[in-house]
């Protein structure tokens, strides 16, 4: 789900002139821009969703019983044939009143707010566990690969990263579910009352982020390695291990930190594939089900939620880096 890092860290850089005053202005500017982006994203996605198949607005029983005329009457009654902008206005009004509409086919007539309140905690628990696991292992692996650059450990790590990033995730996730669960005697699907059924989905969720953290940390550390301050620290007689940990790591982690807020927000999004494979009752699985059963209301809310989460994540990431990185400069660089 995560965008690629844009080339090197420098491409995303802002330049600083002046002191805290301009930082404040930067934050204000960035906030306004994010609000604009949220509005544009929201409106675009909402308009696209107006093209959803009309059948998706009916519950199963309605499709069975009613004829064409009653259906159209129902659509008109629900305001689904109104001009898109008045539909948007109504949706926003309801949104602020805490009403997201009702599910149609997946859980007929259940309010979506209640569904989300039920699903999000499950997904978030998995997400948080895999975020911690993925970050710890990924950063350790990245440091290890940078430390033993172009040796066996690095090669093996690269194999892992290439495999995870190139092969469609569905394939290895499926084989892990089928084979590893058999070998380790772990349950094939998720049961709420069996803690051991948490293990495989959590590991699966973190496989991608381990690869992601590892490869980028390795790359930034290797980039930093040739800097003067590193050479100076080595000349002073500090051990390589110490320099890597205390000097290099802090600088190499900054371009990665920009994605941390996104990661934290996205723990509630879950994985579409993993939640369906392991039958985890979370938001990702809910979206998959909603699509398969053509539940327009549900698809709309979840897709909008994802879009807003990701705008928010990018925004917080930029803010975080503006605070964390002392070298940051606050006007946009010329490419």
């Amino acid at each position: 789900m995560r965008a690629e890092l844009p080339g090197l860290a420098g491409q995303r850089a802002y330049s600083i002139r002046g002191g805290p005053e301009s930082l404040l202005r930067y934050i204000l500017n960035r906030t306004l821009r994010s609000i604009l982006t949220v509005v544009i994203v929201f409106v675009t996605v909402f308009m696209l969703l107006r093209f959803m198949p009309l059948n998706g607005y009916f519950t199963d029983e309605m499709l069975k019983v009613s004829d064409e005329q009653t259906r159209m009457a129902y659509l008109r009654n629900q305001g689904l044939l109104d001009p898109p902008f008045s539909q948007l206005w109504r949706f926003v009004k309801n949104l602020f009143a805490g009403d997201l509409g009702r599910s149609l086919t997946v859980y007929p007539k259940v309010p979506i707010t209640i569904l989300l309140c039920e699903k999000i905690p499950v997904t978030a628990a998995f997400g948080a566990a895999s975020l911690v696991l993925g970050m710890t292992l990924g950063l350790l692996m990245g440091m290890f690969m940078a430390r033993y650059k172009e040796r066996l450990g690095d090669t093996l790590g690269t194999f892992y990263v290439v495999f995870v990033r190139a092969v469609p995730s569905l394939i290895y996730l499926f084989f892990i579910q089928v084979w590893v669960s058999g070998v380790l005697k772990l349950p094939l699907v998720f049961y709420e009352d069996r803690p051991e059924s948490w293990i495989l989905p959590t590991i699966c969720l973190s496989l991608g982020s381990i690869a992601w953290y590892a490869i980028w940390l390795r790359r930034f550390m290797v980039d930093e390695e040739n800097r003067d301050y590193v050479k100076f620290a080595m000349v002073k007689g500090l051990s390589k291990k110490y320099v890597l940990r205390r000097h290099l790591f802090k600088n190499a982690i900054i371009p990665i930190a920009i994605y941390l807020p996104s990661d934290i927000l996205f723990i509630i999004s879950g994985s579409l594939i993993i939640e369906s494979l392991y039958a985890i009752p979370g938001t990702g699985g809910l979206l998959t089900k909603a699509i398969q059963k053509q539940d327009n209301n549900l698809v709309q809310v979840i897709v909008l939620m994802y879009a807003i989460l990701s705008v928010l994540g990018v925004f917080l990431g930029d803010l975080l880096v503006a605070f964390v990185d002392p070298r940051i400069r606050l006007t946009e660089d010329e490419g």
């Binding site: 789900m1 995560r2 965008a3 821009r33 982006t37 544009i40 994203v41 675009t44 996605v45 696209l48 969703l49 093209f51 959803m52 198949p53 579409l272 979206l287 699509i291 698809v299 897709v303 994802y306 879009a307 990701s310 705008v311 990018v314």
Partner: peptide, 19 residues
């Protein structure tokens, strides 16, 4: 900004769903 802010999977799912 707008296009990359929507996660690619969500964008694909959305378009494939409406078409």
């Amino acid at each position: 900004n707008v296009m990359t802010n929507i996660p690619s999977t969500v964008y694909l799912v959305l378009l494939a769903y409406i078409m």
